[in-house]
Design a protein around this nucleic acid. Structure first.
Lengths: 244, 244
DNA sequence: ATGGTATTCTGGTCTGACCAGTATGTCAAT
DNA sequence: ATTGACATACTGGTCAGACCAGAATACCAT
């Protein structure tokens, strides 16, 4: 394992540390499940005090990138966890107009990614996409949630587009919407429809038809957009009695 | 029987502070622009050490909820800030070798933004776009660089799309490419061509023609992509055998 | 009023200490 | 050899107190 930790030099030490450590995770030097060095070692290597390092570390923990256990160490969380927690608090009881920006961004990016995936996906990746659909079917018959399978479907497409920047971006956006996607999939008639739409997207990609892939992805995501719009009609001052 | 034992969550002081402070912002006790109490006061009121409080505070700052200025205080950011900021994490730490991914992402996002701008731009924004073209013309005749005007053209369009998340993202990507864009604009025949292309985009937006806006933006950015592809020395075989 | 200086306030950083869980190594009893 | 209890080292969590540097403000001389 090559350690290439360089002393930080930036605006504030803790934000520099935050950026550097974040990049370690984002670009895969630290993979999910890895244990990162102890705080005392890390601070020494970075050339900053433990307090400063901890500000960065805790921030990453609150955001879902890391998990710390006393006496054990600090570990990298799977990317699917990123932002899931804090954004939930931030959005609950939030003006839907602002949320709409995220929903729209997500949709546009995923449409672009679908188009790229149709052009670039390897056979293995196409197979993997198909498997997520099978998974959804089996989960449905077992009466279980298709949430995880749905997530996987979209992430596989994102990575099949072979553009790291965009696929990372879309993963973040997706995590922000985690809560709403989950809610939507709880509705009784939704899973069947979702599977149908996934099939359409899948076939377009398999046929290397970028235009169709984009169109079917757009159609698919418009459903979710509509749903988010419905579920978050207004925020009243206090209780937010959300019917679910 | 299922697990009756709920895992005990030994909440840490800093995470408790993070949740409490976040709720202050989310439910509007602290509004955008407000100045929050000094760290020393806040830590006293919460009954925790300043270091612990700062871990929460810095986390909120990194997420884009707060902004700190030495000697001045800590202030609450507008909500749009912390919706968009996390996108940054997807991009920071992007390997410069994967420049092509950045170029492509930028192009896709800007095409999407152009389409939205055609649908949503206000008259004032349309006028502003036109002005940047005039600026380019006058700079050209003065023999000066059109770099700033070019940047402005694209940023105005981004903001005219009225999607904070995407426009922040594209701003970031553009900054990464700053250097290359600048180089390209130095070539003798380029400015004239760029102005022509900008005019095409501008007219499409003014005519509220989303499709044309997307097409002309795509055409415009493909030029830059091509340029970056030429100027960048190819990195060895490891990555990206991209044929299409 | 004006302009410059001294003071105070604020966040940024560091040191070094102690606490409380957790893991692991040690060693005796089985 | 396996087991179990214990000591020890290691890890994150927390704290107090100190100093720095930038920014804002008060204040005083002009």
């Amino acid at each position: 394992m090559a350690k290439m930790l360089t002393p930080v030099v930036r605006s504030t030490l803790s934000s520099a540390a935050f950026e550097q450590l974040t990049s370690f995770i984002v670009n895969g030097q630290w993979k999910s499940g890895d244990r990162i060095p102890p705080e005392r070692d890390l601070s020494a290597e970075l050339g900053i005090a433990r307090t400063s390092l901890r500000e960065a570390l805790k921030a990453m923990e609150f955001v879902g990138m890391l998990e710390s256990r006393v006496g054990d160490g600090t570990f990298v969380c799977p990317r699917s966890e990123f932002l899931a927690k804090p954004m939930l608090w931030a959005f609950t009881g939030t003006d839907p107009e602002e949320l709409q920006d995220v929903v729209e961004s997500r949709a546009l990016l995923e449409v672009d990614l679908a188009g790229l995936a149709a052009a670039r996906a390897s056979q293995a990746e196409i197979d993997e996409i198909g498997e997520t659909i099978e998974l959804m079917r089996s989960e449905t018959t077992k009466g279980r949630s298709i949430f995880e399978a749905d997530m996987k479907f979209h992430l596989v497409i994102a990575s099949a587009a072979h553009n790291e920047v965009l696929s990372h971006a879309v993963q973040l956006l997706r995590n922000m919407l985690r809560h709403w996607i989950y809610l939507k999939l709880q509705l009784p008639e939704v899973p069947g429809q979702v599977i149908q739409e996934h099939v359409a997207i899948f076939e377009a990609i398999r046929n290397r038809d970028s235009v169709a892939a984009r169109a079917s992805m757009l159609h698919h995501l418009e459903q979710t957009s509509k749903f988010v719009g419905q579920v978050t009609p207004h925020h009243d001052g206090a209780g937010s009695a959300r019917s679910n």
